[in-house]
Amino acid sequence: MIENLTPILVGTLGAATPLVFAGLGELVAEKTGVINLGVEGMMLIGAIAAFAAAVSTDGNLAVGLIAGALAGALASLPFGILTLSLGANQAASGLALTIFGLGLSAFIGQGFVSYSLSGVKPIAIPLLSKIPLLGPVLFNQDIVVYLSFVTFGLVAWVLAKTRLGLVLRAVGESPEAAHAIGYPVIAIRYGAVLFGGAMAGIAGAYLSVVYTPLWVQNMTAGRGWIAVALVVFATWKPARLMLGAYLFGGMTILQLHAQGLGVAIPPQFLSALPYIATIVVLVLISRDRKLLQLNLPASLGKPFIAGG
């Protein structure tokens, strides 16, 4: 068992990384009061943009990631215009973004189905990677996994310790008050939505350029929706989001290993586990209404039209 543990934990971090990026992005958007159900669509658009960019630059990872982030942010823009400037229903607009993203990525992706990339080699951090068990798990990963650690640190720090974080939270808690003090509520929400889009784009880029690394239609397979659920599970706290993401990453990897070890359960049942677990996790958190009310950004999902 113990000799299996290291590859399982190493894989867990990789499988969790898209959830970390997409979840952190959605968390920031929701902190300002905007729930974007288009994460799945933005991830898909990010995935195909990154894959296309990486293929045409001989597998350049940086180009892929930047293309993914830009495409994700660009994809979030129509959602922002609809919900922030035109006061449209956030749930419906997010859903529209997911349907659009599925269609657009499949449309662009039809030309890229036969390509493949070589993936990305892990970078061992000297000394640290030699620590038993923890070393190879935490310090012998690809650069994007390290980048996810940094992103988590930055998001957690900005939200909790900085003036910007305070403003973001204020806009989510009481947009009217923030507006009255003179903060540009709509502009701040645009910023948060674009950030969420860029993060979802990077999450998709990681899938298509590093993790798989192929383009397959609808390759996110619900990860965007799981990321949205994780934000609720995390009660809008970045550290808990990381925990949730690694839990789900672990489940994905365990399921793959179980299939490899010939566990006598149909593979479809094992594949269904992350989705069922998402429901279980949602139920566990949501049934505690007080806990949810206490942490929920007060204006979440409600449109704000200045002077309206």
Partner: peptide, 14 residues
């Protein structure tokens, strides 16, 4: 490409 159907659907809702 057949995916054009999905693209039209998404645009219509947007």
């Amino acid at each position: 490409p057949s995916a054009i159907t999905g693209l039209f659907q998404g645009m219509l809702l947007f």
